[in-house]
Write a protein that binds this DNA or RNA. Structure first.
Length: 657
RNA sequence: GCGCCCGUAGCUCAGCUGGAUAGAGCAACGGAUUUCUAAUCCGUCGGUCGCAGGUUCGAAUCCUGCCGGGCGUACCA
């Protein structure tokens, strides 16, 4: 049961007798911040006192008199300015625990109104190697997928892979000019990544040299002029004007300094490429590489036989290496409909937008201009090619007609927020105004230096290597700890399996336990630590519960026939029981703002409560058989709740570690 | 220039829709083991919540301005 929701609905009934905005006020029932105030608290008497023009404590008393919660709580207490503090009755807690113990789904309260969600996550470009940013989308996406399903929603997961864009033009160009045929034959995907990186560096070099550098040089000249003029006009009488002037002078100087720094960075980058023995010999012959790459992309899209056959040859290998990562992460999708799937619909999308008068041509490009946004949403380039804006629109059209979702979620990093703002606005104008669109954005994964997470060589860290390292470190820790025992528990193969689950779990949990909107620092040491809110701690807690059953040779399932023996005496038992009953609340929170860290926070709190119980309440050596059974029942529900919560996060548990 | 996001303890981060004395973990210091996994637990130390105003009975949270940082800003995704 979702106790919070139940209390709110009880309050809603009582509040309706006092005021019109009962539902809003009922939302002010919250879990207590401090256990000394009880289990839940209602803060609605204060604002209500205001609107009704009566002392809040008086309102609180009226409310308590109208409130019917006797089956759930002890007599509500009024405190401070008018807080209503609620303490659940132990009999109620026990009855709920008993229900959860015998329920097939731990007694989770499903959503009031089940919806259809389309969940768009992971979405890597197949030609580029996946990096640490993709893992964040994937891991958050999986967690949302499972939590929404657990609450009874219909979820369609769709991996919108980038298999048709400019990156493929880069690979094709690279293949035609730089391919090592032996490597193509033996290590196709690795060679394609090398080609991608190579071409990307060259394109970047030419683009910087031919466009960005002159552009910034011009801006420096302009800014310097501007600054000169400001310097010349110093004879101002009015002090306010003088102040204004000084401010503009300062701002201009700052801008200039920034631009010069950028220029220096660019020159350094260019020099690095020019000094690179592999890259520098290629520069002269590939001076127009940017245009050439676009031409290769355009040829692919136009159906050029060579490029098309290269695409058909490369794609399966790319997908295979991508799927290898998904296999290791334990991820599956309902659909993997990439950009290429929508290829033949793009012209129609633009034509349809145009027929509705939404398209304006500007500098040769077909654009949708939106109120309040300066940059246009370009749906067709001046050379006739389509872009990801077009594909995304076609995708919305397809998803809407195929699955009829109420909500479409995009788990994509925050740098694309403008794109999604434009996409959603355009889609609504286009007629998809009944669908709720949500950009579930997330921050950047940083290295310990505070810069985006990179290897020493400067390239983004490959995902495979990242997982390998986490597993290796986990293995070292598992082995060291087991070796330190008087008699080690674990066989070499068991250690391997544990390391795999702990290592991968650590990476996933680190992503999930942070608020997704903030950047966070990636640290193996922190994520694999046994203290604090980590996967390893959660897995350890689980293993510790399970070891009681192993030690006592107790079958948890057969125990569930004896739920009548459940009792709550010790404060640690009560705290644990209450925490066990709050799973539904945590899941509901995850589903309202699409933030899995509500669930990790809940699990951490639960595990802490269990630790306290474990210290204070002997289970196998409990004084009486009934107490022993009762505590075993709490242990059983704890293990299953932690196990289930981690499963929803895509993390596996181990019986021993 | 414009737009979005961020600024919380020495470090890494929570803080839900405004609620009572701002919380964890690490680090530092001290304690607990004949007891179910001590990979644990308990305690101490540590914060003018970037700054200044405002709204409110009540602000880390909402509003305005400023300072500092990140990202984005027309044919990449």
């Amino acid at each position: 049961m979702n106790i919070l929701a139940e209390l709110r609905s009880r309050f809603c009934i009582a509040l309706a007798k006092l005021d019109g905005s009962a539902e809003q006020l009922a939302d002010m029932v919250l879990p207590s911040q401090d256990a000394k105030f009880g289990d839940y608290q209602a803060n609605c008497a204060m604002p209500l006192g205001k609107t009704l023009g009566k002392p809040p404590r008086e309102i609180a008393q009226q409310l308590v008199a109208l409130l019917d919660v006797a089956d759930l709580c002890a007599e509500p207490q009024i405190a401070g300015p008018g807080f209503i503090n609620l303490r659940l009755r132990d009999e109620f807690l026990m009855a709920q625990i008993q229900q959860a113990l015998v329920a097939s789904d731990l007694g989770i309260t499903p959503a009031d109104q089940p919806q259809t969600f389309v969940l768009d996550y992971s979405s890597p470009n197949v030609a580029k190697p996946m990096h640490v940013g993709h893992i964040r989308s994937t891991v958050i996406g999986v967690a949302l997928d499972r939590v929404l399903r657990a609450l009874g929603h219909r979820v369609i997961s769709d991996n919108h892979i980038g298999d048709w864009g400019t990156q493929f033009g880069m690979i094709i160009y690279g293949y035609k000019h730089f391919a090592d045929q032996a490597a193509i034959a033996s290590h196709l995907v690795d060679e394609l990544s090398r080609l991608y990186r190579l071409v990307n560096q060259l394109v970047d070099y030419q683009e910087t040299k031919n466009r960005k550098l002159p552009d910034i040089e011009k801006r420096i000249v302009d800014e310097a002029h501007c600054l000169d003029r400001l310097h010349d006009s110093t004879e101002l009488e009015d002090p306010r004007e003088r102040e204004e002037h000084a401010k503009r002078l300062q701002s201009s100087e700052n801008t200039l300094a920034e631009l010069r720094k950028e220029l220096a960075d660019m020159r350094r980058k260019l020099a690095a490429v020019e000094g690179d023995p592999q890259l520098s010999p290629l520069l002269a012959d590939h001076s127009a590489i940017g245009a050439a790459v676009l031409a290769e992309t355009a040829a692919l899209h136009a159906g050029d036989a060579t490029n098309r056959s290269l695409w058909e040859r490369f794609l399966p290998a790319c997908l295979e290496s991508m799927n290898e990562i998904y296999r290791r992460l334990g991820v599956t999708f309902d659909f993997t409909l990439g950009e290429s799937f929508y290829e033949d619909r793009l012209a129609e999308v633009v034509a349809d937008l145009a027929s509705q008068g939404l398209v304006t041509e500007s500098d040769g490009a077909k654009c949708v201009f939106l109120e309040g946004v300066d940059a246009p949403f370009i749906v067709q380039k001046s050379d006739g090619a389509f872009l990801y804006a077009t594909t995304d629109l076609a995708t919305i059209q397809y998803r809407a007609s195929e699955w009829k979702p109420q909500t479409i979620l995009y788990v994509v990093d925050h740098r694309q927020s403008l794109h999604f703002e434009q996409l959603f606005a355009t889609a609504r104008k286009w007629g998809f105004d009944q669908i709720r669109f949500e950009h579930v954005s997330f921050g950047t994964v940083l290295g310990e230096d505070g810069r985006p997470f990179k290897t020493r060589s400067g390239s983004a860290v490959g995902l495979g290597g990242l997982l390998d390292e986490a597993i290796e470190r986990a293995h070292a820790i598992v082995s060291a700890n087991d070796d330190a025992r008087e008699s080690p528990l674990l066989s070499p193969s068991e250690r391997r399996q544990i390391a795999e689950r702990v290592g991968i779990g650590a990476i996933k949990y680190a992503d999930l336990s942070h608020n997704r909107t903030s950047d966070y620092v990636f640290s193996y040491d922190k994520m694999l630590a046994m203290q604090g809110n980590t996967a390893a701690y959660m897995q350890y807690s689980y293993a510790r519960v399970r070891s009681i059953f192993a030690k006592g040779e107790i079958n948890a399932e057969s125990l569930r026939g004896r739920v009548s023996e459940l009792g709550i005496q010790h404060p640690a038992e009560r705290a644990l029981a209450l925490a066990l009953l709050q799973l539904s609340e945590a899941l509901a929170r995850v589903s309202t703002d699409f933030r899995p860290n509500h669930l990790t926070a809940y699990l951490y709190d639960l595990a802490s409560k269990y630790s306290s119980f474990f210290e204070n309440c002997p289970v196998l050596k409990a004084e009486t058989d009934k107490l022993r059974t009762s505590r075993l029942l709490l242990c059983d529900l704890t293990a299953r709740t932690i196990g289930y919560g981690l499963q929803l996060l895509g993390i596996e548990v181990v019986e021993r570690m």
